[in-house]
């Protein structure tokens, strides 16, 4: 399928929906008036089913096109949002690093305390 715009896809979809409705009206009235057989009625139902399948393709295409429009290239809104998420997470990580640094400071002071205690037990030679 050629690359249709969102509006073109919507126009094709409306056309398919109208065709299904029109066939529904025609076959129902025709069977009620005994102008067609049940077999013909069923054939028309199969035709409607094929249009329904086409309609599903158009609906999916519409979803895909809308998503493509905001995500596909490197400067797309989706890509920029992704980068922004990365930047925000980095900022949180900076804060975590400062917390780690402070934890390390406490550990260093504790270690220093132990070393001072050991040094105090050594004989002092003047």
């Amino acid at each position: 399928m050629t690359k249709l715009t969102v509006e073109e896809i919507k126009a094709e979809r409306t056309s398919a929906q109208n065709a299904i409705d029109s066939l529904q009206n025609q076959k129902t009235i025709a069977l009620e008036e005994r102008r067609i057989s049940i077999a013909t009625f069923n054939e028309i139902s199969a035709t409607q089913g094929r249009i329904q399948n086409k309609l599903n393709e158009l609906n999916v295409l519409l979803v895909e096109r809308a998503v493509d429009d905001v995500t596909l290239d490197d400067n797309s809104p989706g890509a920029l949002l992704g980068l922004s998420v990365k930047r925000l997470k980095e900022a949180v990580e900076r804060m975590d690093e400062i917390r780690d640094l402070l934890e390390s400071a406490a550990s260093v002071i504790n270690a220093l305390n132990v070393i001072i205690g050991v040094l105090a037990t050594l004989p002092i030679i003047i």
Partner: peptide, 25 residues
């Protein structure tokens, strides 16, 4: 900096879900 992309992006989501899902599928 993200406001403009966010506005465009949410409009894209709206088309996908309103036109593609609700009014489509």
């Amino acid at each position: 900096c993200t406001n403009e992309p966010f506005q465009t992006y949410t409009k894209g989501l709206d088309v996908a879900l309103r036109d593609g899902y609700i009014e489509g599928v």
